[in-house]
Simulated scan of single mutants.
Amino acid sequence: MSDGLEKILFDPMKHPEWVVPHSPEWYKQLFGEVGEYKYPWKSTFDEPRAEMILAEKINSSLCEGRLLDVGCGHGEFAFQFALNAKEVVGIDVEKGFIEKGNKTKSVENINFLIIDGNGNLPFPNDYFDVAYTKKGPRDWYHEGNRIVRAGGTIIGFYHAGSHGALRELFPGLYSQIPKPEANDILRVLNLHGSGLTDINVELLEEIEYLSTPEDVLIKKCFGQSKKLRDIVWQECLQDVERIFNKYATSKGLKIINYYHLLTAKAS
Rank of each mutant, 00 (worst) to 15 (best):
D11M: 02
G172K: 05
Y132M: 04
I155L: 05
F170N: 10
E108M: 12
T249K: 13
H163D: 02
V93G: 10
F45T: 11
V201N: 06
N200W: 04
K219P: 00
N109E: 12
P213Y: 06
L196H: 02
A160E: 05
D126R: 13
Y27N: 02
L186W: 10
G101E: 03
N145I: 03
G156C: 04
L253M: 12
M13T: 15
E206G: 09
E108K: 12
K86S: 14
P16F: 04
P178F: 04
S61C: 14
G223W: 02
T104R: 12
V89Q: 00
S211I: 00
I199L: 07
P21T: 10
D46P: 09
A55W: 08
D92L: 02
S43H: 14
G117M: 10
K265R: 14
I98P: 07
N183K: 15
C63T: 02
D69I: 03
I155D: 10
V201M: 07
F79K: 15
F170H: 01
S250I: 10
G71F: 09
R187V: 03
A266G: 13
I154H: 01
C63F: 11
P24A: 06
E33M: 15
G65A: 08
K265M: 07
E47F: 05
R167A: 04
Y141K: 09
N84F: 12
E33G: 11
K95L: 11
N125G: 01
I177P: 01
F97H: 09
F45N: 14
K95E: 13
L30Q: 08
V93Q: 11
I155M: 08
K265H: 08
S225G: 05
I207W: 00
P180K: 02
C63Q: 14
Y127A: 03
I8V: 13
E235K: 15
T133I: 05
H15S: 08
Q80W: 01
L253N: 10
D46E: 15
T197F: 10
Q238F: 07
G144L: 07
L54I: 03
E6M: 13
K103Q: 14
G71L: 05
K246I: 06
D3A: 15
I110M: 11
E51D: 15
L9E: 01
R167L: 01
T197S: 13
